[in-house]
Each structure stands twice: as C-alpha cells, then as structure tokens.
Computed example of a mutant assay.
Amino acid sequence: MSTLHQDSIVIDGLIIAKLDRSVFEDMKKGGLAAANCTVSVWEDFPKTVDNIAQLKQLIRDNSDLVTLARNTADIVKAKAEGKTGIVLGFQNAHAFEDNLGYIEAFHDMGVRVVQLCYNTQNLVGTGCYERDGGLSGYGREVIAEMNRVGIMVDLSHVGSKTSEEAILASTKPVAYTHCLPLGLKDHPRNKSDAELKFIADHGGFIGVTMFSPFLKRGNESTVHDYVEAIDYVINIVGEDCVGLGSDFTQGHGHEFFDMLTHDKGRWRRLTNFGQVINPEGIRTIGDFPNLTATMQQSGWSDTRITKVLGANWMKFFDQVWGT
C-alpha cells in the first residue's frame, strides 16, 4: 500500500456486500475509512429495522475493525483508529412506505443515504428501467423531509426525469453514488453527459462505479477501465465533485442477484446480468490500493487522487449531513 493511499481518507460511496468479518477485514486491507453499506432495497419498514439491528450487532461484534459512522467526525475518528466507518444506506425509498415520520425515525437509527427508487416505480418516482413519470407529490415531501433531517438523496438507479425533478426540488445537493457514463457504454443504468453536467451544475456529486456490466468492456474490464471511466466523468464535471462508488457485491451468490433484479410489485424480471466479474486488479475491496497505484500510473496528480479517493466525499457529506 502506497503512502499516498495510506494517508488518504478512502471512501466507497456504495457497497452492497454480504457483510461479515471477512469483508470487514478486506475493508481494512483496502484502507477504507468509510463505506455506504446498503441495508434496504425491497424490504418494508419492519424488515429494514431488523436489517439495521442485525448490522449494528455485527458492528459491535467486530468493533476492532468497524464502527458506525453518523457524520464526518466519526469517519475521521475511524481513520485515526485504523477502522472503517459503516454508513447505513438504502437503495430504495420503499421502506419509508407512505409515512413521512419514518424518515426521521430512520435518521435516528443512523441512516444517512437513501436512493429514491430502485430501477422501477415506487410512491416517490420512477426508476431507470421504465417509462419515467417524474417525481410524485409525495416524492417532493419525502425529499423535503430528507433535506430537513440530513439524509442524502441518491439518484443512481432513478429515471432521468425523476432525477432532474429531484435535483431541482432538493434544497441540499444530491448524488449519483454509483453510476457510469453513457458516453462509454449505452446502458439504462448509465448517465448521459448532459445528466452528469446537470447534477454537477446544481452542486451535486458523482460516485463512479466499477460494476462490470456497465463498463465499456464488461467482464473483460480491468482497473484501467475503471480509471478511464472516472477520468471521463472528471473531464465533463471537473475533479471536485467526483468520487468512488464501487457497488461491490462481495460474498453474494446467484440467489441475491435474482432477488435484486426482480421487481417486487409484480415479480417482473428486469434484467439479467449473468455472471458478474469485477475488473481485473480490483476484484475485491482489499484491492483498493491497486486503484490508487493505477491512478498514479495514469499520471494523476496526488491532489486529484486524494480528492477522488475520499476528500470530495467528505466535503459533500458535510454539506448534506451537517455536523
């Protein structure tokens, strides 16, 4: 691990791994100071509360490696102690159900990031896999309440129209925590140059993923393709609002992807990724130091590398969460 990587605050804007001690050990190996870890996608309110309770127990049981992160001070402390700060996040507002009061309740539990939709329609708006009806009236109330309590609005799997309306409706900047550019690969989950520019122009943030189905060369991709994608985004929006959002699914098998890619409403098959192979050189969370080395090999300045590894996320978290 290079000194630059070791000294940097490294943040992963999205991990949906099957969390256990081995993954936490890998986070340490990768030098992660913090990660936004998914605790809810299709689960309702009670099941999500159960997921949170279980994860908090897991964090307590592995307190030598991880700690719960509710703010940036917690992330700084985790880094100083050689631990990883676990940020609780949702990939769908489904668990809010039709009750605005649940939003503050979840914030009290430690939830700090919520993606509005997961691929399809919900009470808030529309996902990226179907005709986009935009943000609902309830969706506007949800965003206002998320702004008030300090939960980040994530739009990674959200449809284009709903995203645009959410960016304009939110009084706090919003993010694509894990996306890739459409300019490198045409895929419903990827964002156009115009969409990337629009969120950045409104103070928003872009976490770039390395999920191979969305990368230019798919399962043939390497860590160099990931750096190329980050570079592409930086060339459009600049280096101050871009970070990492790997979308690591470490530890999960076929059954998990089967659950994720079926819409809960009608059990429709949305997509089939087949076998997902992470880019060579960054196969696991522990390989993050290779990413820094590849950025250095690509001629990136130390300043740019430090920003993209996590300094940009830290500034953004402060804006959205408050202190």
Rank of each mutant, 00 (worst) to 15 (best):
D302I: 00
T284K: 11
F288V: 12
T261F: 15
I282T: 14
M295R: 07
G265H: 15
R266G: 14
T294C: 14
Q296I: 12
R268E: 11
R266F: 13
Q296N: 00
W267G: 14
T271G: 09
H262D: 09
V276G: 06
G274V: 12
R283P: 04
S301D: 07
H262F: 04
K264Q: 09
L291S: 00
S301V: 00
G274D: 11
Q296F: 01
G274R: 12
G281A: 01
L270S: 12
N272R: 10
A293D: 11
G286Y: 10
M295W: 08
E280W: 01
G286N: 09
G281T: 03
T271S: 12
M259W: 15
G286H: 13
R266S: 14
W267Y: 09
Q297S: 13
L309Y: 05
S301W: 01
P289V: 03
T292F: 07
T294S: 14
P289N: 04
W300V: 06
G299K: 08
D287F: 02
D302Y: 02
D302V: 05
R268F: 01
T284P: 09
Q275L: 15
T271P: 00
T271M: 14
N312A: 00
W267D: 15
Q297W: 10
F273Y: 13
I277L: 11
E280F: 10
K264N: 06
R304K: 13
R304V: 05
G286V: 02
T284I: 13
T271V: 14
W313S: 07
N290W: 04
S301A: 03
R304Q: 07
H262P: 00
S301Q: 01
E280S: 14
L260E: 03
Q296M: 10
I285P: 02
T261D: 12
K264E: 13
T292S: 06
L270W: 13
K264V: 11
W300Q: 01
A293L: 13
R266T: 12
G310A: 09
